[in-house]
Design a protein around this nucleic acid. Structure first.
Lengths: 207, 207
DNA sequence: CGTTACATGTAACCGGTTACATGATTTG
DNA sequence: CAAATCATGTAACCGGTTACATGTAACG
């Protein structure tokens, strides 16, 4: 097969706007909770998701423009801001349906892509290399992040107080951050301990 | 400021080839262990890192071409494969130095970007939504992956046998996969339990 | 009046993905 | 010799990032 000479095909029909991943859907969710301007979204990018996931204003403006073109959202000149260009985006029924569809659909997880894993492999090939400093830095970073999440948890969800459904879900999102950082830090400590362990030079039992 | 009319600048000087992330360095590591063709690298993409991180052959060929242009690696027509185009890539001293530099440098971690976190937020805004099936699927997926890693661990690193330095490092890479999947599955179970818990409709103590 | 914050955008690049193409080698 | 596999690539897109541009509103 392989139609020879099929080179100069017209540029494929503009693919129907169906993003595989989730920035637009994250924005859609934010807008569902509260109609906002692109600037507002960039500023907070959602109180809970923004803890873990940063998006620049350019990304956000781009997605908003696309979603408006797709009819998922609509913009009105903001009631405040007289001569400014500020726009207020509101989710349309098409957008709400799309968000439901996406939420119910199954999503493939991201690859686990950690530079430290590669660096361990480098250390195996280049025995002179000392990864301990970088490891200590990473452990400290994860522990600091963990402390931040724990602080938020203690402040926003003190134990013993009953939570609304929305609050309970919000807390679970934060829990993910906590559990993720705990696992990262624990792994880091395990690696550091192994690096500092007596180097049983090569497969020699300590005897 | 902002030199008006500075539009038609010549396309900025081709930025010195300094990738911020790590695919080239992962490939470099693989090549350091064993000079290979692009096809070989695509096939295994490194026994340990390939467990977690997939790279397509196009990515790999592109990176190999760039790294050769940068003088990090060199290609020779492969000794086998008579009339074929197969090339064997070998790390040059420049590449080895770059790998060391990168391994010692500190790396910024990736954002934690999980669709389920967004979906929980959606569920908070749209109370009709039932995320339980998707959650069960994710838990099953993580547990299956965990079983695979545990199998490899048991096969390659049975307890009680002393390990060489390289083997110990290899095992730590695998441990990361294990700990990551454990944390993901544990979080999933926590969320599922919360979703199925008595819905204390809104902040009403069960009393 | 000048600086800072608000607010939106264009241009250009890089990494990751998908589709397509091409040709050599091995095998039934 | 036809099909599968080996082996390498081009083209085109999309998402994420950085640099640059532009203008309004609020504040001291």
């Amino acid at each position: 097969m392989g139609a020879v000479g099929a080179r100069a095909l017209p540029p494929r029909a503009p693919p129907a706007y169906t993003p595989p991943m989730s920035l637009p859907h994250a924005l859609l969710t934010s807008l569902l909770e509260k109609p906002s301007s692109g600037y507002d979204l960039a500023g907070r990018f959602d109180k809970s998701i923004g803890y873990f996931w940063h998006a620049t204003h350019q990304q956000i403006y781009r997605e908003l423009a696309r979603m408006e073109a797709a009819g998922w959202i609509e913009s009105l000149p903001a009631p405040d801001a007289g001569a400014g260009r500020k726009k207020l985006y509101t989710v349309q029924s098409k957008g709400r349906k799309e968000l439901e569809r996406w939420a119910m659909a199954s999503t493939v997880p991201m690859d686990l892509r950690d530079a430290l894993m590669v660096k361990l492999r480098v250390a195996a090939a280049l025995p002179g290399l000392d990864l301990a400093p970088e490891l200590r830095a990473q452990i400290a970073r994860h522990e600091a992040q963990l402390a931040i999440y724990r602080g938020i948890e203690a402040r926003d969800f003190p134990p013993g107080r009953p939570l609304s459904r929305a609050q309970a879900l919000q807390r679970l999102i934060l829990r993910k951050g906590v559990m993720y950082e705990e696992a990262e830090a624990a792994w880091g400590r395990e690696v550091l301990a192994a690096l500092e362990a007596p180097i049983a030079s090569d497969a020699q039992p300590t005897r």
